[in-house]
Every structure is written in C-alpha cells, then in structure tokens.
Nucleic acid binder design. Structure first.
Lengths: 87, 87, 87, 87
DNA sequence: CACTGGAAAATGCCGC
DNA sequence: GCGGCATTTTCCAGTG
C-alpha cells in the first residue's frame, strides 16, 4: 500500500481511530460525572440544586471572562474612539 | 379526500406551511438585526463592542433569572432539608 | 445632553434598544415554531421526521434558487433581457 | 466545623470540586477532538464527511451491542450458561 | 414511557 | 478563503 489512495486510506483510519479513542475517553468521564452525582444523591443532596450550583459557578466564570474581554476591548477602543468620530 | 390518509396529508401540509411561514418571518427579523448592526457600524460604532454590550445585558438578565430559580429552589428545599438529613 | 459624547450615547442606546426589540420578536417567533411542532406532535406526527421534511424542503428551495440565479446569470451573459426573448 | 451543617458544607464542596475537575477534563478532551478534526482538515479531509463516517460507525456499534445483548438474553432464556454449552 | 431540560454537535456568520 | 465564534438545532439523560 504505497499508492496515494492507500496512504489516504491509512491516514483516514488513523484519524478515525484517534477520534474514536478520544470520544471513548470523553464518554468515560461523562459516566464518572454521573456517578459523582449519584453518590451525592445517595448522601442526601438534592441533585437538581447541585446542578444549579455548578452551572451558576460556570456562568460566573464566563461572566468574569466576558468582563475581562470587555475591559480589553475598551482599552483598545481608548484613543481609537468607540463612538462615532465626528470630523 | 375524506379518507384518513388524505386528512393526515392535509394536516401535514398545514403544519409544514405554518412552520415555513414562521421560519421565513424569523429569517426576516434576523436580517433586520444584521441591518441594524450594519447601520450602527456605518455610524461609526464598533460592532464587536456593540455585540459584547448586548450579550452582557442578556447574560445579566439570565443570571437574574437563575438567581430567582435558585431562590425558589432553596425555598422548596427549606424544611425538606437540602443537605444530608442525619437521623 | 448636546455634547458629542451624549449624542453618541443616545445613539448607542437607540441601537441597543432596536436590536433587543428585534431579538425579542425573533424569540417570540421561535417559541411559536416550537408550539406548532408541539401541536403537530399532539396530532400524532413524528416531530423528528417533520423536521427532516422541512429541512429537505429548505435545501430543495435553496437549490432551486441557486439554479434560478445561474439561469439569470447565463441570460445576462448571453445579452438576453430578463423576460422571454421574442425572436 | 464539626457541626452537621459544616460537615454537609464540606461534603458539598467536595462534590462540587470533583465534578468541576471532571468537567474540566472532559472539556480538555473535547478540545483535543476538535484539534484532531482540524488536523484532518489540514490534511485535506472533508470534516463534515468525516463526522458523518464516525457517527455512522457509532450507530453500527450500538446496533451490534444491541444485537449482542439480545443474543445474551436468548442464551439466558434457553438456560444456557454464558460460554459455549458442552453437551 | 413520554416530556422536559440541559449538554453536545452542527451550521452559519463575521473578521482577518 | 479560512478559522473562530455565536447561534441554532439535535440528542440524551433524568423525572414524573
């Protein structure tokens, strides 16, 4: 298999293999997360609230990131003029 | 066309028609939004910042909503016990 | 507020307001679409299939539009007017 | 902090920490997958098709798994042990 | 076992 | 023209 088609096929197989392996890993971790939620539930915690807490923390983080991005943009904008430049 | 199949076909056509009409409206509005951004840009505003402002406002709103949801959940949880109930 | 900055701020508010209004409209329509799907489902239709049908029709339409655009282009290239060529 | 509430709070923090750590791992892997797709694209592969191929393989796999499960079920129903029945 | 909500994937858009 | 990003759509797990 040294023809281009064979090579491409080999490359394709390699890419597919790598992606499928990574997806399996990802799935494993997703299952782990499910397990932790189950464990929390078994310890008497309300899973719904737990999820809410985690998503709130995630949103806080993304909001902080956005603030930072805004700050950067404003810094850039200073001197460049944010609003319309009149003449 | 008074057989069930015909009736179903007519119903189907009706549903498809309604959905397609709504999607066209939606697309029209999406285009309008694009136009407004273009107009703002033509007036010297930085579209990137404008988008950031709008998304920040949207996030604020959703955060407030989430806070409210949390509050409701906590209210529910009171008396039910949020954390593990020991004995 | 007759200074340039105030004017820009007012303009900015106006743009933000218009965009947010349009986005709300858009969201309303999106909800309407969801409702129609729900209604279809309540009438025994398979929503997944329904979605497929509609997206297929959309594709067909865009293909037809493309064809039409091509046709017009060819007509122009041949020095033909838009309407049918009489002789 | 040896009161029940403190204990619950500590437990809660632990659960949140574990989940967040796992989610970060998951995100890392998701990014890796994106990278592989990008690499494939850089090597001339059509990402859209590649995704289709992978999802098709996944479906096949789940079908095969289902079949296997069925097979096992039948074996059980027939009072067969898991391995080959010797006599 | 259907429904709802939330995560993941895919599509389309914008700027470079 | 492509990569990154935001939006949208699709899928799936949890729940009643």
């Amino acid at each position: 298999m040294s023809d281009p088609v064979g090579v491409a096929a080999d490359q394709l197989k390699a890419f597919v293999g790598r992606i499928e392996a990574l997806e399996e890993e990802k799935q494993t971790i997703a299952n782990d997360i499910k397990d932790v939620y189950a464990e929390a539930k078994a310890n008497g915690f309300d899973v719904k609230i737990l999820r809410l807490v985690i998503s709130a923390r995630r949103q806080d983080k993304s909001e902080r990131d956005e603030m930072e991005a805004m700050f950067d943009l404003y810094c850039q904008a200073l001197g460049m003029g944010f609003g319309p430049v009149k003449g």
